[in-house]
């Protein structure tokens, strides 16, 4: 039995299906990211785990205990909101102490734990500061300390870093990760930033239009996306149409052996996994852009424009207008039967 089990979760608002067929099991200590474009149901899922939204159908079980009937105040989960939701009328220390007060923790150990929690997020000395007088990053840290000080069974984070600037975000990602590793708190992060999800989590849950597209480790999801949607959402990707006949895939002049039924397929390929070769997909270099450690090529082919990323490692490379063949190793491509998945 897993630590947290979400079974057949479904949520509808009137006619709008916000979430359906949602199945996920989370192990203790795992860092899971819910990743997907705006409106795909990430917040809805998190709110159902937190208890602020009631599922239309389905089960949420935490350590064998059915959570759906437990009021949110009694679930013992730590939540960090996108807006931070700090109590503006309380100081940093009072904010962090709030949950402990609710648990009637005695004064001495409460103060001790508050001090520890603020120190952990690097806010020693900010105890008496009010949220209004703190920067976004500092408020974020208070919110994390407030959620963690109650030693929650699960930490839920809804786009916690989206209000920070790029540099601050990266810094907070590192801190979040190291705190999570240290405390071992099971964590579920909602984000629409694929880089963030891949940097932080053990597994990502890629969602689209209220459904799960893929659950996998970041490396697995990146290298072997389950659908063209996942492929394009997790970084730059080429989607080419091909045909399988008698166990052989053809994309233009490119050939490879693939198992499975005959029929049209969509082939997804990462730009950095493609190379120029003596045979393969025929095309012409339309343009190339120098990016320091690499060259980014746009190649015109009969299949449309293909993006190719080549390391700037001193090897000779084609120039604009040059006819080329684009090729790749069959292991690097994703082959998706049409109709098997949308996207």
């Amino acid at each position: 039995m897993s630590f947290l089990e979400l079974t057949d979760l479904r949520k509808t608002y009137g006619d709008v299906v916000a979430l359906e067929n949602f199945n996920l099991t989370v192990e203790k200590g795992e860092f899971i990211s819910l990743l997907g474009p705006s409106g795909c149901g990430k917040t809805t899922t998190l709110q159902m785990i937190a208890g602020f939204t009631e599922p239309t159908a389905g089960k949420i079980v935490l350590s064998g205990r059915d959570l759906v009937s437990v009021p949110p105040a009694k679930r013992g989960l730590g939540i960090v909101f996108q807006s931070y939701a700090l109590f503006p009328h309380l100081s940093a220390a009072e904010n962090v102490a709030f949950g402990l007060d609710m648990r009637k923790v005695d004064r001495a150990s409460r103060d001790e734990r508050v001090r520890e929690a603020l120190a952990m997020v690097g806010l020693k000395g900010y105890e008496d500061r009010f949220p209004r007088r703190m920067s976004g990053g500092q408020q974020q840290r208070v919110a994390v300390a407030r959620a963690l000080v109650i030693r929650p069974e699960i930490l839920l984070l809804d786009e916690p870093l989206s209000n920070l600037d790029a540099k601050m975000r990266e810094e907070m990602q590192g801190e979040l990760l190291s705190i999570q590793r240290r405390l071992g708190t099971t964590t579920i992060l909602v984000t629409h930033d694929q880089q963030e999800a891949m940097a932080l989590s053990n597994r990502v849950v890629v969602m689209s239009k209220g459904r799960i597209e893929q659950i996998a480790s970041p490396v697995e999801a990146y290298n072997h996306p389950a659908s063209p949607f996942v492929a394009s959402f997790l970084g730059k990707t080429n989607t080419l149409s091909g045909e399988v006949r008698g166990g052989t895939l053809s994309v233009g002049d490119y050939r490879a052996d693939v198992p499975g039924a005959d029929g049209p397929v969509a082939v997804t390929l990462r730009p950095e996994k493609m190379r120029f070769d003596a045979t393969g997909l025929r095309g012409t270099v339309a343009s190339r852009v120098f990016q320091g450690n690499s060259w980014s090529y746009h190649v015109d082919t009969a299949q449309g424009e293909v993006l190719v990323l080549r390391q700037n490692d001193g090897q000779p490379l084609p120039v604009e207008g040059e006819p080329v063949f684009v090729s790749w190793s069959p292991a690097d491509m994703g082959v998706h039967r049409e109709g098997a998945r949308h996207g």
Partner: peptide, 14 residues
């Protein structure tokens, strides 16, 4: 901001 209330509830406030 209603999420401030949600935060208080999640921390156990009745």
């Amino acid at each position: 901001d209603r999420s401030i209330e949600s935060a208080a509830i999640s921390l156990g406030a009745g």
